[in-house]
Design a protein around this nucleic acid. Structure first.
Lengths: 215, 215
DNA sequence: CCCTTCTGGATAGTGCCACTCTTCAACTGG
DNA sequence: CCAGTTGAAGAGTGGCACTATCCAGAAGGG
């Protein structure tokens, strides 16, 4: 199919597709002449993934490119998961590095209490430290004991995630698998967030207070 | 304290504080003259909350204002939770309203299966429908049975959330409580996301594959 | 008293990002 | 033959979150 078909089928403007091509998010089509390139289903698929990652997942174009590049490495899906993790943006302001580092012992303590094996320089350590610092600053401290039950839930979720990836293993081609691994990390996140909000609404109703209508 | 002290103690540039004042995120100080206003600890506290919500929670200035306004309503903390929920941005492109609505039955099914009481026009319904639509489009369908275990985890998390809010009830003043309610919804979200990623890293290592170093 | 510094208020400008538009020559399909 | 499409490249746009500048009126130290 040509670029106009790609545009029609995906609902993405032609200009935007050209932009993604220029930015290297979308691989070029099979060029048949100076003014004709043909694209396949994989381009359509990739385009939909890009839209989902940016619009729903909230990733920047640069982060999306990193993730897609990681996905295209011919690794097994679990390794792809790792690469995707490291490609994720975890914005920690350089100015507050010091105060973030002060929280490192608390992260260590939690990781140890959970018996987790986490790389010493995992970006998630710093991300967690940054969030804990924020909470402390506004006077909403969470102790390790407070966090442990949440960590248990996270561990259960991670087991579900990996079981899902494993269940798909072998049944499909490598790229679809890598894609699923990335999807499980990135696109399931907003799903879990909204499930938690729904559960909060339900739980609040059940406990007898809620403001049903927004102003 | 004066604006310069506020700036020094919070690490926020004076210009930015003025901007927040203009935008109504921060209430004005006690004005003692044409060129002198004094601010209190509550301003410092509020300022830190604004920074946490925007920098870590990823809220826009407008969304932050909505949340802060909701917090300032003299409601009980659970009701505040509701107002905060409705003030949250759940960006669903107007162009794709139709295809999102197609997912509504699946959301209904999940809500029913969980036995949740959710308002018919809760914004979270649409948010979940949008995410499910995205997943379907890229060929990563999640059935209700796939989602149920995640919903159970979300329910458990919500119970922890509300227990926390309840535990603080009565012990502090109303504004601090409302603040905690909002914090529990918004600032714990990135914490849970990163806990899940840590758990994924651990689980992946445990199962024998990981790419330890990013390129 | 003078002179630097700070204040609130207002307006304009900046940098970044994700597109979006324009232009162009080459080519396609009818 | 010719309206329409294409790739390539560069410029332009709009939104957002600041950031800078300017101003007149204090404030405070020397």
């Amino acid at each position: 199919m040509r670029i106009s078909d790609l545009s029609r089928l995906s609902g993405t403007p032609v200009g935007t597709i050209k932009y993604y091509l220029r930015e290297g998010l979308l691989p070029p089509g099979r060029q048949l002449g100076a003014t004709l390139s043909l694209y396949g289903d994989e381009h359509l698929q990739r385009l939909r993934l890009i839209r989902a990652l940016t619009a729903r997942g909230g990733l920047s174009i640069a982060a999306t490119r990193d993730v897609l590049t990681a996905m295209d490495e011919p690794l097994d899906p679990l390794a792809t998961l790792g690469v995707v993790h490291y490609a994720l943006p975890t914005p920690v302001d350089a100015a507050e590095t010091d105060s973030v580092d002060e929280q490192a012992p608390r992260v260590d303590e939690l990781v140890r209490a959970m018996g987790w094996e986490i790389s010493e320089d995992s970006p998630h350590r710093r991300a967690l430290a940054a969030s804990l610092m924020d909470l402390g600053r506004i006077g909403a401290d969470y102790s390790t004991e407070d966090l442990l039950p949440y960590a248990e839930l996270a561990a259960a979720a991670a087991k579900l995630d990996l079981d899902r990836i494993k269940a798909l293993d072998g049944s499909e081609d490598r790229f679809k698998l890598a894609e699923h691994a990335a999807v499980v990390v990135l696109l399931l996140e907003p799903v879990l967030a909204v499930l938690r909000r729904l559960a909060q609404e339900n739980e609040t109703r059940r406990r007898g207070a809620w403001a049903p209508d927004a102003p």
